[in-house]
């Protein structure tokens, strides 16, 4: 029964992760992230860590998700970001080094998992913790891909948060059998959640400042946002497509 629930949960997690990365409407993407964080809290409950579930709800869903949503509906002096992401993705094969890093990251993790779990790793997992740890890998993959391929900074913050969630799942799932270090593992995840929160809040605030001062929503000043307020983009609409790295 618990395993069936875990399968359902894993599927939903993957679905929402994909939604929050591929949705062009940024508001919906952030909403999908909030839902994803709430499901993560459920996953912690399944792994028997109610305090972590509470922390995930509070830090992950409420504060991190809230701060990301706030960049889209910010009031006051700062203009909000355009709701639809119109920056071009980076050319797919523009940076072989980046792809090497992504594949290396995933490949190494997969290899280590196979080694740790033995032949069981290649069959459908039978315990909740293994299943959730295994779910962490594709989520990390999605996050890494989006982090490398996207230019919009809000999307990269989302991708970072998803990548982090994947790592936390792997950490929680792998360490669950080793009962000796449970408190340490939870402390690690808690610190990780706080870092993700602080990083997201700082990143979101910076993004808004950058947008207000220079009309930028990417790290590259050439890719100006075409916000609905029309703030400072003197560029032709198509010029954002030119790859200038």
């Amino acid at each position: 029964m618990a395993l069936a629930a875990a399968w359902g949960l894993a599927g939903l997690l993957l679905l929402l992760a994909g939604l929050s990365l591929f949705q062009r409407d940024l508001w919906r993407a952030c909403e999908a992230f909030v839902a994803f964080a709430l499901l993560m809290a459920l996953a912690w409950l399944l792994l028997g860590a109610p305090w972590l579930a509470l922390a995930e709800t509070l830090l992950g869903a409420l504060l991190t998700g809230g701060s990301l949503l706030w960049t889209l509906r910010g009031r006051g002096a700062l203009p909000r970001l355009a709701p639809v992401d119109e920056t071009a993705r980076r050319a797919r094969f523009s940076a072989p080094l980046r792809w090497l890093l992504i594949l290396g990251w995933l490949g190494l993790t997969g290899l280590a998992l196979v080694w740790l779990l033995g032949p069981e790793a290649l069959t459908p997992p039978r315990s909740t913790s293994t299943l959730l740890a295994a779910t962490g890998v594709p989520i990390m993959g999605l996050g890494l891909w989006a982090f490398a391929a996207q230019r919009h900074l809000l999307r990269r913050l989302l991708a970072f948060n998803l990548l982090g969630s994947g790592v936390f799942l792997l950490l929680g799932g792998l360490a669950a059998p080793a009962a000796a270090a449970t408190a340490e593992v939870r402390a690690l995840i808690l610190i990780g959640l706080m870092i993700a929160l602080l990083g997201s809040v700082l990143g979101a605030a910076l993004l808004l400042r950058l947008h207000a001062q220079a009309g930028q929503v990417t790290l590259n000043p050439l890719f100006k946002a075409r916000s609905n307020a029309g703030s400072g983009s003197g560029m032709a609409p198509g010029s954002g497509m030119i790859s200038t790295r």
Binding site: A112, L116, L170, A175, A181, G192
Partner: peptide, 11 residues
């Protein structure tokens, strides 16, 4: 990346 390394060491 550091946290993932720790996860594997813990495992």
């Amino acid at each position: 990346a550091w946290l993932l390394g720790i996860a594997l060491l813990l495992g």
